[in-house]
């Protein structure tokens, strides 16, 4: 449980961090909250020779609504989502998600950016960001670019981030009136990764029709998934029990889980079915309460 020797670098400018990444290439890793990276280093699974700590760079830890968007700095700690009034009033899905991640000690360190950049299909934020239709802002030697969340997770533990790029911010369309969200997770014990989890975010028009809906699935495939068929089934509809039931079934069809210690693939599909229905129902309740 002791990593091999490495060099620790702590730039205080983003540009400096990027040039360090360019200089050290494959040998370097960004260190954010360290709660995915350091365990991997202790097990000698990850063997970076240079750790570039970005926690000293100013301006990467923020949380605000601006120009029709919710903007989350990559270095925002999970605990800051939990404590934010903005999040608890308008983004119940993000609040649910933050609360379901690990335990308070981990959440004090873990960052939202790291949770996405790690590319772990078991992490909870990816599905939430899928449901929220987020865009990820990354900065590299040639300036910054935005990546839609559906293009961000490319393979098992692999993202669209180049190894000379840093994720700086997450942009989420501001929640319109009459919207609600929920994150439903089954874990074996507190602090565990999901056996399966479902994120839902939806909004209604004035007539009670679902205008927009996002459904993201955690840990039931090699990458975090969007359930397009469940979303399509509900979009433009006035939800009722049978529509919701069918959406659960469709989400279960959309996922691709494997057998492991958390249970069989079939069990996880069944969980996705049930959790999708629960997430939708709670999202609806919350939207009506908000309206």
């Amino acid at each position: 449980m002791i990593p091999p020797p490495y060099e620790y670098l702590n730039p205080n400018q983003l540009s400096e961090a990027i040039s360090l990444l360019q200089k050290h290439g494959e040998e370097a890793k960004i260190l954010a909250g360290g709660h995915s990276l350091i365990p991997a280093m202790k097990l000698r699974f990850a063997l970076p020779e240079y750790l570039i700590d970005i926690s000293g760079i100013e301006g990467m830890d923020f949380l605000r609504e601006e120009e029709g968007q919710l903007r989350i700095g990559a270095m925002s700690r999970e605990s800051s989502l939990e404590e934010s009034e903005l999040i608890s009033e308008k983004y119940p899905l993000l609040l649910d998600t933050a609360k379901m991640i690990a335990d308070p000690q981990v959440r004090n360190m873990a960052t939202v950016g790291g949770n996405l950049a790690h590319g772990d299909p078991a992490n909870d934020h990816p599905a939430a960001m899928i449901a929220l239709r987020a865009r990820v802002v990354v900065e590299g030697p040639n300036g910054s670019r935005e990546i839609g969340i559906d293009d961000f997770f490319t393979d098992f533990f692999t993202t669209a981030l180049q190894n000379n790029e840093i994720l700086t911010e997450i942009k989420i369309p501001a929640a319109p009136p009459n919207s609600g969200g929920s994150y439903q997770k089954i874990e074996r014990k507190v602090g565990d990764y999901a056996a399966a989890a479902v994120a839902c975010q939806l909004s209604f028009d004035a007539g009670g029709t679902i205008q927009q809906i996002g459904i993201g699935l955690t840990n039931v495939g090699p990458i975090p998934l969007r359930s397009n068929s469940a979303e399509d089934h509900l979009r433009g509809q006035i939800p009722d029990d049978s529509l919701i039931r069918e959406s659960g079934r469709l989400a279960a069809e959309d996922c691709d889980p494997v057998d492991d210690l958390r249970g069989s693939a079939e069990y996880k599909r069944d969980l996705v079915n049930e959790l999708t229905q629960r997430a939708i129902k709670i999202s609806i309740e919350r939207s009506e309460r908000g309206s």
């Binding site: 335990d103 074996r188 014990k189 507190v190 602090g191 565990d192 990764y193 210690l261």
Partner: peptide
């Protein structure tokens, strides 16, 4: 301990 599950005060 990620997979050998010890209950906590929550459980």
């Amino acid at each position: 301990f990620m997979d050998y599950l010890l209950p906590t005060s929550v459980e």
